[in-house]
Design a protein around this nucleic acid. Structure first.
Lengths: 344, 344
DNA sequence: GGCGGCGATGACAGCGCTGTCCCTAATGCC
DNA sequence: GGCATTAGGGACAGCGCTGTCATCGCCGCC
């Protein structure tokens, strides 16, 4: 019951340890009967191979690291939990395990991080959360060491060079386009927009979707567009600027949910009823989005699934299969709740 | 630059690998000069020891597992991210790494989980998130295998038996007591309460704090107390019951923030102004608590620090130090925001 | 002055697996 | 029937460390 080793299994199945290894790893050379005997022995002995031993002698470590920007738990990073859930599920299915590392964006010693990941942990791959996934320094450090990277919502243009890693994302342009059209369908024309972090690619794509949907290439009064940084606090002044105008917009579309909540908050303080006098929409479908008052209309990304796909990519890649794409785009969906309604 | 081993360092420092090992592990037998030479060599070679090799040959794995109840990302579990942050910081400081595992409470195969943790991963310790930390089955499985456990906010009475693991918590009774007194200080007397999950110890403690603060042992009208499960949804009916009464309470104290938000939501729908006609308070200080309208008065737990303490405990314990307490209680603090005010 | 003791170091044997190479017997082919 | 081929499986050498034990001066001590 305690700690069965491969030797115990080999003895019980009356084969060599190498054969046990082959069976357990699904390698070809093993007859069905042998395979069955080994499996049976392993089961009755409750055998589980040692990760360390496998990692030490083999070429895989069965470890994937999820690296997220740390320090403060920004509301905007809330979906990390879900990404993690997906990644863990995929790991479990593949016999892998998920390590979590934070990196302080301020005092970031990417060199040490890379060294740890590569030498100490020998991870089979790394999942990078924004904005880490767009940090050229970290990216090239990892690429130099031959680390398999998956970038979540990558922004940085990597010139189609596969060594920079694979990515998972949604079509941010389309998401923003559709949300804007949703507001227009309700009759809104004066739709304000709060931009995302300028260095984050998704921000630009979302803005483009908004612009194209609203005026189809025509000029948009710049008073409708205010800067933000994807954080709640950063959107407060933007919301105030938008709502303080003499002729204020009848709807505000923020580039993400955290900022949309800031709009809700400012409207609340100014006594502007939502959605009565103002419609508000975001993107992300944070857990909090359905809990605020009124519940937020937003765009849901299949975050859990994206996390799983990221982990799966690394697992398959390590197992020898090579993907031939650079980025996988997932379907998003409009979640219409109560924060949007036709203008009065 | 690539992958320096202990042999390289030994050669460079002109000592045996054993000496390198000693120096790097801070073992006593090593002269200052040797120590310096080795450190220098390790630094210039950019050497980082292999975790797998250390785990395989030694008695420590330098791995800690954070096990959280999974499946759905319940709003109530949002503080997992922060706990994790703290744990990771402590791990880094101690040369450890954090693995994250989810376990499905429904189809929970605790046996397999334990086997993985013990045989495959050989983790040095496990951090258990509620309600896992109160599952007798899992707890005893882990205890049997000699796994070092730290329970977050443990509830289950373990009869002072240390084998069940150490715990970190706040004084839930005091927290609830103080919050109730805060409401009373503002002039509230008719204070409703929404209970937490019946199997979660913190729930009972919080309710006791409320009861004692409100009537000091006297009988409380049961209409003031409604059942909840710590989740947003579970508190919706409770809030409706409380607010639907002819003589409705002037304040509602929910056993956690998720449920307090549900109260906010119901009040919003019923057109009851908060805090004008109703004060609302919770416990936890979730990230969302400061973002909802109005921002929620709540009790903050030093979650990051608690996570760090949990990891540190395991690290010290594994390094041979033994703690002599069963539970560490952290200080909480009242966070008064805008959802509470004197009754009209 | 011989001896126990101690501080500093090294030799060596694994830890539990996988990769590589090798052997054996059965199979296919002309 | 003779030979190459191949499926099935074993032997063995590490992977990069740590634990244990041995070694070797050099100290103080009766």
């Amino acid at each position: 019951m305690s700690k069965a080793t491969i030797y115990d299994v080999a003895r019980a199945a009356n084969v060599s340890i190498k054969t046990v290894s082959r069976v357990l790893n699904g390698e070809p050379k093993a007859s069905p009967e042998t395979r069955a005997r080994v499996m049976e022995a392993a089961r009755t002995l409750n055998y589980t191979p040692s990760l360390s031993a496998r990692a030490l002698s083999g070429s895989r470590s069965f470890l994937i690291a999820l690296v997220s920007p740390g320090g403060v738990s920004d509301n905007a990073m809330l979906y990390v939990t879900e990404l993690q859930l997906g990644a863990i599920q995929a790991c479990r299915a593949g016999g892998y395990h998920l390590l979590t590392e934070y990196v302080d964006l301020g005092a970031s010693d990417f060199g040490a991080l890379t060294e740890t990941l590569v030498s100490t942990l020998r991870v089979d791959g790394v999942i990078l959360i924004p904005p880490l996934c767009d940090n050229p320094q970290l990216l090239s450090l990892l690429a130099d060491r031959g680390v398999n990277c998956v970038r979540i919502s990558p922004t940085l243009d990597t010139h189609g060079d596969e060594k920079w890693g694979w990515g998972v994302d949604i079509d941010n342009y389309q998401a923003a386009f559709q949300m804007t059209r949703h507001l227009m369908d309700q009759g809104h024309r004066d739709i304000g927009f709060i931009q995302g972090h300028p260095l984050h690619a998704a921000a630009a794509q979302r803005e483009a979707g908004y612009r194209d949907a609203l005026f189809d290439g025509g000029a948009i009064p710049e008073r409708l567009i205010q800067p933000g940084m994807f954080t709640f606090d950063s959107a407060l002044p933007a919301a105030r600027a938008l709502l303080g105008q003499k002729q204020r917009p009848t709807a505000i579309f923020a580039a993400n949910d955290s900022m949309a909540m800031a709009v809700l908050s400012v409207a609340y303080r100014m006594g502007i009823p939502v959605p009565g006098a103002l419609s508000v929409a975001g993107i992300d479908d944070l857990p909090a989005a359905s809990v605020v008052c009124p519940p937020l209309t937003t765009v849901r990304q299949p975050v859990v699934e994206m996390g799983a796909a990221a982990a799966r990519f690394i697992i398959n890649r390590t197992a020898g299969q090579v993907g031939n794409y650079l980025k996988q785009v997932f379907d998003h969906s409009l979640v219409v709740r109560e924060s949007t309604a036709p203008p009065a």
